[in-house]
Design a protein around this nucleic acid. Structure first.
Lengths: 146, 146
DNA sequence: GTAAGATAGTTTAGACTTGAACTACTAATA
DNA sequence: TATTAGTAGTTCAAGTCTAAACTATCTTAC
């Protein structure tokens, strides 16, 4: 890291942290035969059922084409159901199957715990401070996006 | 964001920031016909030429299989050269071509500037503070990895 | 020197992701 | 109501990424 610019350095650290945390998450999910994107789908549908593929795509900040393939695989595995929407024949209403619900209820607590544990090397007040800074940056970038 | 845990919230913000910054980076690189991973390769080789594919993989924290495909495409585009290593007939020494060097020298300054600009919504002291926290977390996770 | 083990690179199968083109359906408007 | 515009979902090509199996080459230890 030859750069002196604090922004660049912060970004490089963020990349490393992102990579490291995701690697740990992925390793945790693998025994359940779940990928990280699939976990994200289950977690989202667990908190908000009956949404369309497009809405799910919006929630996860990905394209609808992406969600379409993801759903193909997850329907195949019987984790998710595509129900017809009587109000709109173009759309599906997405629902967790019993299997999907059971899986996310098993995996989510451990997952949350694992994630929290990774941040626990930081003292509690530092975690809060980090949250504040990231929160501010996130909010600022939303505007930047436009 | 219904979660109350500061670690989880921080992580969610980090995900969003990561996504947003990468989207901006990707958009900046597109006119140069460069993907983000390809940019990373050029930037790395610009700072350290003559390394092997395996070393490059280590530097970028990806697998050698990944680098192999990346190099195939970048050699095809004449951005990078695979030179034989007289010391080790298994290995290549990777070098930027003139075209690759010219490209990274064009793109890198703008890219750095763009990245810094994204963090400029945060006051200078907050940027430094963020760097400190991320740096500490990064270091801590390195140990966690093992 | 040679056999065993390690290392550099390649290949493959499978999953993910995007953007763009396409189909089917809905909504809006003239 | 008929045309037009917009929206939900699908498909495709291209790139990315991993893990695992494979080839070729080194290295090491007998």
């Amino acid at each position: 890291m030859t750069t002196r610019n604090p922004a660049i350095l912060a970004w490089l650290h963020m990349l490393r942290i992102h990579q490291q945390v995701q690697k740990t998450e992925t390793a945790h999910l693998a025994p359940f035969n779940l990928t990280l994107p699939q976990f994200d789908v289950l977690a989202q549908l667990y908190s908000e059922e009956g949404i369309t593929q497009q809405t799910l795509a919006d929630r996860l900040y990905v394209t609808k084409g992406n969600v379409c393939g993801l759903m193909d695989r997850m329907v195949e595995q019987e984790l998710v159901e595509r129900r017809a929407d009587p109000q709109d024949r173009r759309a599906y209403m997405l629902h967790l199957t019993t299997k999907g619900k059971r899986l996310i209820e098993t995996v989510l607590p451990l997952h949350t715990q694992l994630l929290a544990a990774q941040f626990d090397s930081l003292a509690s007040d530092k975690q809060k401070h980090l949250l504040d800074l990231l929160s501010e940056l996130d909010r600022a970038l939303e505007g930047h996006a436009a």
